[in-house]
Amino acid sequence: MANAIFAGFNLANFWDDSDYALKQYVEEPPTSELIASVEQELGYKLPAAYIELMQGHNGGTPVNTCFPTDKPTSWADDHVAITGISGIGRTKTYSLCGELGSQFMLDEWGYPPIGICICDCPSAGHDMVMLDYSACGPQGEPTVVHVDQEDDYAITFLAKDFESFVRGLVNEQAYDTSAEDLQKDLARIRSSAFSPLLTELVAQQAEADYEQIIRNLCYKLTIEKQYFALHADELSTLLYDAQFLLYSQAHPVISKAAFLEVYPDIIALADGEFSTSGYAPDFIEDWFENRRAAGQIVVDSTGIFTFSEAYERTLRQRLLQHLA
């Protein structure tokens, strides 16, 4: 698409037409009548650069989805990210006047009445990119800002106009810190302090160095996943087993709920640096129910939950294999 507004800018490779984008964002090219009716409904004149872009491709997900910032937001220290750019229309979910369009975000999410919500973000509503008409009035040329619902709707200036915003978008790979994050995770797993509870639990195991077993298991898991988190994979399941084994050897487990209550204090949300810093409760609940159904977690004559003798023997043998 050749035009004076985006002169020298390659719009041919701007859009990423995934199935999701085509379904949720992309409208037919807008007619003059549709543009006028959308402007009337929203109460603002749309920027010429935005109309120009939409006439060539009416909404969607761009290839480059990040915009640099000079101060931190709830998304990152140095940039914000968008999921898509709203099209001019009413039929697609994320169009300007669609089901989750601009007015919905103002009415239901409480975004400030400064203009038009133009781009949604990966936070699913907790931050937005908006056209800000505060200084220019409804008929003027708006700036582009980021509005952070997570930070009491803090406003961060992004670009002087919509064209500058489009030209300033960069690819998310420019902010990919996964390699550095992985090395930090691995360093933390190798040497950072266990939580007080996990420290207590491994100290009571005279059979073997369970501190090293836990560190080795978490290290292998993190290499496999490329980040430190427990889900439903084989190593995660073994770590659920290890935590239950250590805890149940030191403290009576009177119910599933009792164990689930203390579980976060071992690794998931533990005090200290050795932690996944979060977890999905469904994974640990499913693990517990599966062990119960298989007869591997049993209730003894006093009403205490433990591993069966047979499963505990097998489990300890498996754990010892991870000592080296």
Rank of each mutant, 00 (worst) to 15 (best):
A7T: 05
A7Y: 02
G8H: 01
N10P: 12
N10H: 11
A12M: 08
F14A: 04
D16V: 01
D16Q: 12
D16C: 09
Y20I: 08
K23I: 04
P29S: 02
E39W: 06
L42N: 14
G43D: 08
K45S: 14
L46S: 09
A48S: 14
A49V: 00
Q55N: 15
Q55D: 06
Q55G: 15
N58Y: 02
G59A: 10
T61P: 07
N64H: 09
T65F: 05
T65R: 15
T69L: 10
A76Q: 10
A76P: 14
D77K: 15
D77A: 12
S86Q: 11
G87V: 00
I88N: 13
T91I: 07
K92S: 03
Y94K: 11
Y94E: 09
S95N: 07
S102M: 04
S102Q: 06
F104V: 03
F104S: 12
L106H: 15
G110R: 06
G115K: 06
I118Y: 05
D120G: 01
D120P: 02
P122M: 07
P122K: 02
M128R: 12
M130G: 11
A135S: 10
A135T: 03
C136G: 05
P138Q: 10
Q139D: 12
E141M: 13
H146I: 01
D148N: 06
D148H: 01
D151A: 15
D151P: 01
I155H: 03
A159H: 07
K160G: 03
F162W: 10
S164Y: 00
F165C: 05
A174C: 14
Y175I: 12
D176F: 02
S178N: 08
D185L: 05
I189Q: 01
I189P: 03
P196F: 06
L197T: 12
E200P: 06
Q205R: 11
Q212A: 10
I213M: 05
K220P: 01
K225T: 00
A232E: 06
E234S: 07
L235D: 10
T237K: 10
T237P: 03
D241M: 00
A242P: 06
A242L: 08
L245S: 08
L246H: 08
H251Y: 08
I254L: 13
S255V: 00
S255H: 10
A257E: 15
A258L: 04
E261M: 10
P264N: 07
D265M: 13
D265S: 14
I267P: 11
G272P: 04
F274Y: 10
F274N: 07
S277C: 12
S277W: 03
A280N: 11
D282F: 11
E285L: 07
E285G: 01
D286S: 13
D286R: 14
W287I: 00
N290K: 15
R292G: 04
A294T: 04
G295E: 11
V298R: 09
D300K: 04
D300M: 05
G303N: 02
S308G: 09
S308D: 06
E309L: 13
E312H: 01
R313E: 15
H322P: 02
